[in-house]
């Protein structure tokens, strides 16, 4: 972040280097139920980001000492594939992926009705197949669709998005260049039903006014993503309307 560069992020027409307006999302594609062997799964593309999420459970919690006798725990694993970035990523958990796994599981815990499954564990695996800034948001979007697909009871589906600053201007959904050479990056996630914020981080510098505008921009975009998430889940069963025998 905040590396010096002479890239112009906004051209004369007010468009960004990938042709988007400052408050425009990248193309988002969400598909639910893509894996056969997991209880639930989702595939998400945020522009050039590609994320696959799989959910197992609720199932018996191992190791035993992590069990909570009053509710289920959510164990997330965020992992970047070695080929997800241009310089081969050394495989295995590192400081960054451990942090992202933790914040995503905390965000999900706020919507999943964990008290229905005491002593159990709900395992969420996110694999970043291709990264282009904003993978934690894409991962969380994929994870919450996969959880709903797995039939896990939850209060709402969580959308997530990042707002950043480059060239002194606030930009929605930063791409890699804007993230690397910009001044700030603020990923956020909300519960659309209540407006509660379940994930909010900031890297870089912003004034208080900028931060508040960024938050408004992000929340507005979250509702757009929320519709796409719901649509992906409903599309999976569009023709599959089961009759129920009484």
């Amino acid at each position: 972040m905040s590396m010096e560069s002479d890239i112009k992020f906004i051209d004369e027409n007010g468009l960004r280097i990938d042709g988007r307006r400052p408050d425009e999302l990248r193309h988002i594609k969400i598909e639910a139920g893509v894996l056969e062997n997991a209880d639930g799964s989702a595939y998400v593309e945020f522009g050039k980001n590609k994320v696959l999420a799989a959910v197992y459970g609720p199932r018996e919690c191992h190791p035993r000492h992590l069990q909570n006798p009053s509710k289920a725990i959510i164990q997330c694993k965020y992992n970047m594939m070695t080929f997800s970035v241009s310089d081969r990523k050394r495989p295995g958990p590192d400081r960054r992926s451990v942090e992202i796994s933790k914040i995503i599981s905390e965000a999900l815990e706020s919507v999943v009705q964990t008290e229905l499954f005491p002593r159990a564990s709900i395992d969420v695996y996110m694999e970043i197949l291709q990264a282009n800034a904003g993978t934690r948001c894409a991962g969380l979007v994929a994870a919450s669709v996969a959880l709903a697909d797995a039939g896990v009871p939850m209060k709402d589906i969580i959308p997530a998005i990042a707002v950043g600053k480059a060239d002194g201007k606030l930009l929605l959904d930063l791409n890699k260049e804007e993230d690397n050479y910009g001044q700030a990056d603020v990923p956020m996630a909300i519960i659309p039903k209540t407006g509660e914020v379940v994930l909010l981080q900031m890297d870089g510098h912003m004034t208080q006014e900028e931060f508040e505008t960024a938050l408004d921009m992000g929340i507005k975009a979250c509702y757009e993503i929320y519709e796409l998430q719901k649509d992906a889940l409903k599309r999976r069963y569009a023709v599959e309307t089961p009759e129920v025998e009484e």
Binding site: Q113, G151, P153
Partner: peptide
Amino acid sequence: SLLGVKSIASNYVNVIPLGGR
């Protein structure tokens, strides 16, 4: 709270799950 099919039976709204454990 579930992905499922909405059904109304004797004054109760239920969601019949499409999957889950």
